[in-house]
């Protein structure tokens, strides 16, 4: 029950944010115009359905939080782990945790939450040219928005066969092509288990690591390498050619910040739902 209400509250925040954004462009749009049943069309998913009627009330209740949420106005897909659909044989039930990705989000929703989409596959021109899709190895135009998105419902994905898929279950869409990765992911040889090795198994969704519109991971600067022990100078050959003198300290700072952020987010997860915590004591570990 607790979870249900919390989920409702979060959706409420998002709705409030959407409403604020939309207010300028489309004054007539009300949050309860959305068909929430369509968003969660997959019936057998053990995800709590949010009754459409509950949403407006919650929006009011959390109204003060709306401005903060507006900065981050895009949906975060899911607020808590959801049990993975039974699509893999021989895998004990496990859960996916929501994507923590908050940057590089598709700006599409700014318009498409109220604008109708043109379902015709085509080369995207203005005002779509600020968005580049780098997905599909042989793609180069083979993929486009409605390969994965539901043209009729901006808050839903779809399979190639047209079946709607919730964002929280994005792996369903991915696994259509990436079958090997999906199998490895379901069994734990691909992807990442979060928090604990024992007890409830919670893994990242595909989109937590791979930005769905440009799934290849970007190269990045490594953290500093080995250090010589205290009291001895670093041998010459330890320093790679072209190393920047301030490199280490700078990277160290960035990294520190990164760690802080990650730690905070983990802690937030832990406190938000004790049952979902990774620190499951051995005794209640059986799921």
């Amino acid at each position: 029950m607790l979870r249900r209400s919390k989920r409702a509250a979060l959706i409420g925040i998002r709705l409030a944010a959407c409403a604020l954004l939309a207010a300028a462009a489309a004054p007539g749009l009300a949050s309860d115009d959305w068909d929430w049943d369509a968003v969660e069309a997959i019936d057998d998913a053990p995800v709590t359905k949010t009754p459409a009627a509950g949403a407006p009330a919650k929006t009011d209740a959390t109204a003060p939080a709306a401005p903060r949420a507006a900065e981050n106005a895009l949906p975060d897909f899911a607020a808590e782990p959801v049990t993975v659909l039974a699509m893999f044989d021989g895998v004990a039930p496990f859960e996916v945790v929501p994507s923590q990705r908050d940057d590089e989000m598709h700006p599409c929703a700014n318009c498409h939450q109220w604008a109708t989409s043109n379902p015709e596959p085509r080369r995207l021109l203005t005002p779509h040219d600020n968005f580049e899709l780098q997905h599909g190895l042989h793609g180069k135009g083979g993929f486009w928005c409605f390969t994965c998105h539901d043209v009729d419902n901006n808050f839903s994905l779809k399979t190639l066969e047209g079946e709607p898929v919730e964002f929280a279950h994005a792996y369903v869409v991915c696994s259509q092509c990436h079958a090997q990765q999906a199998r490895d992911w379901a069994h734990g040889a691909h992807g990442k288990r979060v928090g604990n090795w024992q007890g409830r198994r919670q893994v990242f969704n595909c989109t937590a690591c791979h930005y769905q519109h440009r799934p290849a991971l970007k190269p990045r600067e490594p953290l500093p390498g080995p250090t010589m022990r205290v009291g001895l100078p670093r041998p010459d050959h330890w320093v790679a050619a072209g190393q920047r003198p301030d490199h280490g300290a700078e990277r160290q700072r960035d990294w520190q910040r990164d760690i802080e952020r990650r730690r905070e987010s983990v802690e937030r997860d832990d406190t938000s739902d004790t049952a979902a915590s990774g620190r499951v004591p051995a005794d209640d570990a059986e799921s």
């Binding site: 992807g191 604990n196 090795w197 024992q198 690591c209 760690i259 983990v266 990774g278 004591p281």
Partner: peptide
């Protein structure tokens, strides 16, 4: 960490999920 069921720090830090730890 691991004796209380948690993942080791290196696994937790890995941004690519290259590390698999378990029983």
């Amino acid at each position: 960490r691991t004796r209380t069921g948690r993942q080791p720090a290196c696994q937790e830090a890995c941004p690519t999920g290259a590390r698999v730890f378990g029983n």
